[in-house]
Simulated assay, not measured.
Amino acid sequence: MRLALPISLALSLAPLATVRPVTAIAAALSLDLPAASEALSDLDSQLDSYALPVGGYVDGVLPVLPLEGKVHRGSWRVGSQGLTSLQLLAPLQEQLEAAGYEVLFSCDTLGCGGFDFRFETEVLTAPAMHVDLSDFRFLSARKGAEDHLSLLVSRSANAGFIQMIRVTAPESEAPIRTTALPAGTGTAPDVARLTLDNGSLSDTVPNLLAQGHVVLEDLTFATGSSDLGDGPFTSLSGLAAYLNSDPSRRVALVGHTDAVGGLQGNISLSKKRAASVRERLIANHGVSAEQLDAEGMGYLAPRAPNLTEDGRKANRRVEAVLLNTE
């Protein structure tokens, strides 16, 4: 049975591993999702713009195709622990190609540009979409001159996530319409009450909420060491206040290095530094361990050229990345 939803989405059973067909906007497009899928976001904008990635993030640049038209933004949660990100994306790519779409670009995690790709491309705000920085895949495609789309898939510990952004020709008489998530989900916290002991508000939290990630600029480490300095560090006080005010909030601490030395050694060092920050937040600031992940990217996500000491210094950092509460 096919159920017509307000944005022309449709769900029903299909033979591929027990799946639900999903019809997107404008011209008919039917994609099969696993049967355990549930819609998280369902947004239409009659006249809007979208920068469609058509290449990986390299040397500070993300190649995009600027698009304008009717934009549909949808996302789904797949309640299955057994599917990898490749198993989520591959069947969708096959269906797009069968429907006449030309794949412009596809990539996985580091091939996309890792951390930087994730934050340069458009991602729906949590809880509508969750992206694991160590495991995500992306695809952009087109059909003719006026039908473009992107798919972004990733996983949490217990679910898969799929995001589709599709741009088609505008419909002159169709209204602009959005569908809000249920009240109380995905809302920004009350930043005004996240004050430090001295009464001042750290800019760590406002920047984290505005950008989805923030560099913990005041942290110090001994050269070549993962040992965090004694502090105190204002960035950690602000971050701890944000996390302690709501136990459902989660962040990933992501370490980065300069490009001196081998990749594996730098990934190991960057992850150890992130782990040191995690331990400090738990031991000194009372943050729950369940609210913190620690990962390392080594030198794979620079924010400055590694050709100068200033650039290398800027690249040696730990960032906090806002996560879904899944």
Rank of each mutant, 00 (worst) to 15 (best):
L40H: 05
C112M: 05
L152E: 00
I7D: 15
L300Y: 10
R193W: 00
Q87Y: 02
L104Y: 01
P247M: 02
I162H: 00
N266C: 07
A99Y: 10
A180F: 15
S248G: 01
S8V: 08
S41P: 04
E68P: 01
G231W: 08
N306G: 15
G311W: 12
M1S: 10
L89D: 06
Y101E: 07
L239Q: 05
E146A: 14
V131M: 01
R137N: 03
R316C: 02
L208N: 07
L209I: 07
A314C: 00
P21L: 02
T223Q: 12
A289V: 07
N315L: 03
R316I: 03
L151F: 10
I176C: 07
L11S: 08
F115Q: 12
S37C: 13
I165S: 13
F105A: 13
L216K: 07
R273Y: 04
E319S: 15
L292D: 13
E279C: 06
D246Q: 09
L151T: 07
A320M: 01
F117T: 09
L323K: 13
Q95D: 02
V191M: 02
H148R: 12
L92R: 09
Q81V: 10
S156R: 08
L152H: 05
F105H: 15
Y101I: 03
D135S: 03
L96E: 02
P232A: 02
L300V: 13
V167D: 09
V54E: 14
S12A: 13
L31I: 06
R73G: 08
P6F: 05
A99K: 12
E102L: 09
T23M: 06
T109F: 01
T234E: 14
V61L: 10
S268V: 06
E319P: 01
F105E: 12
T325D: 12
L281K: 11
L104Q: 12
P15K: 11
P91S: 04
E146R: 08
L40A: 07
A180N: 14
T220K: 09
N266D: 14
E68T: 11
A241H: 01
V254S: 14
